[in-house]
Simulated scan of single mutants.
Amino acid sequence: MKVKIIVCCVLALILLSCLGSRDNSTEKFIVEWEGKEIIFPEKTQFALYGKDFAFDTIPDAEFKIITYVDSIGCASCKLRLPSWIDFIAQLDTMKLNVQILFFLHPFNSRELKAILRRDNFNYPVCMDTKDELNKLNHFPQDFHFQTFLLNRNNEVLAIGNPVHNYRIKELYLKILLKGGLEDKTSDQTTVEVANSTVNLGRLKKEQEKDTVIYIKNVGPNKLVVLDIIASCGCTIVECDRVPVAQGEKLALKIVYKPDNKGYFNKSINLYCNVPSSPISLQVLGNVE
């Protein structure tokens, strides 16, 4: 119980700092959910949408991460599947016994399946068309609070979406590693960004366009990229994670895949070992 209380207090501080004073009941909400058991529907069917495979039971694992996505707003923006793929790969390299489960309450199942196939997301997904999981647990409306780290007994250890917030990801890893996460930011450096805002101009719908932003390491230590978080799943960021020596440049390749017409302004947060982390970048333009 002592460990759970500490985790809850740390999570409250993280979320309060991220959300500011937007919701004064955030701490009370976290205390309410800490240790709460997530109830799963009796019959739950999962599928891997990139493969011909399905199963209908909740897998047994030391830890589970479940994320619920409703039908409101941009599904691709909420899902951020490429970031989940990177995070799952990171968990696999650490050889952690974690089961990732997605519950999607879709407005348009065909559209969601197309997104899953487009992003090659071959992990368990439940198309919860009747919204059964939410009806059993009454999740908050804010999608930032619709992802949970659970223990083997399906009790909540932490709340928050690790692909939308690096601090939440850091907390998840600390819990999974039982506090053994190394602090990679102890050796700080400084950087120069030639252009933090890039205008891609006019694009056709579904036309991909890419650009490169260079970040120069001008400090005394190597530049280490800890995480990259984009505001939308339409924005993909690629870079070499090898530490960058003093005087060298880090190249960030940004690929934008528009799926809606109109003006866009997407943000990218680069978490690295600089005092001003995260470094904020913007990509904007107009889709005709």
Results as ranks from 00 to 15, higher is better:
A12K: 04
L16Q: 14
L16T: 11
C18W: 06
C18K: 13
L19S: 14
R22Y: 10
R22T: 12
D23N: 13
S25V: 05
T26V: 15
E27I: 03
F29A: 05
I30D: 02
W33D: 01
W33V: 03
W33P: 00
G35L: 03
I38T: 04
F40Q: 12
Y49N: 07
F53Q: 09
D56I: 14
D56A: 15
T57K: 01
I58N: 02
P59W: 02
A61R: 05
A61H: 11
A61Q: 04
E62M: 08
F63V: 00
I65C: 00
D70Y: 14
S71P: 10
S76D: 12
S76M: 08
C77I: 00
R80Q: 09
S83M: 01
W84T: 09
I88V: 14
I88G: 10
A89E: 15
A89V: 14
A89T: 13
D92I: 08
D92L: 09
M94E: 14
M94Y: 15
K95E: 09
N97F: 03
N97A: 15
N97L: 10
V98G: 01
V98K: 09
F103R: 01
L104N: 03
H105P: 12
P106D: 14
N108Q: 12
L112S: 05
L116P: 13
F121G: 09
N122Q: 13
Y123R: 15
V125K: 06
V125C: 11
D128A: 08
E132F: 00
L136D: 06
F139Y: 04
P140I: 09
Q141S: 14
F145T: 08
F145Q: 07
Q146M: 08
F148L: 01
N153C: 11
N154P: 14
E155A: 03
V156T: 05
A158F: 02
P162M: 12
V163P: 04
N165P: 06
L171G: 00
L171D: 02
Y172A: 01
K174V: 04
L176E: 02
L176R: 00
G179V: 12
E182F: 04
D183L: 11
K184P: 00
V193W: 07
V193Q: 04
A194M: 04
S196D: 10
N199H: 15
G201P: 00
L203P: 00
L203W: 05
K205I: 15
Q207V: 01
E208F: 08
K209F: 05
D210N: 10
D210R: 10
T211K: 01
T211I: 02
K216Y: 01
N217T: 07
N217P: 06
N217M: 07
V218S: 13
G219L: 05
P220V: 12
P220M: 14
V225Q: 02
L226Y: 01
D227A: 06
I228F: 06
S231Q: 02
C234S: 05
T235C: 09
E238Y: 12
D240Q: 15
D240K: 09
V242M: 14
V244K: 12
A245H: 04
Q246L: 09
L250H: 06
L252T: 10
Y256V: 06
K257R: 14
N260S: 08
K261R: 15
K261D: 03
Y263S: 11
S267A: 08
I268E: 07
I268Q: 05
N269M: 07
C272K: 03
P278Q: 06
S280C: 03
Q282W: 14
V283D: 12
V283Y: 08
L284Q: 15
V287P: 00
E288R: 02
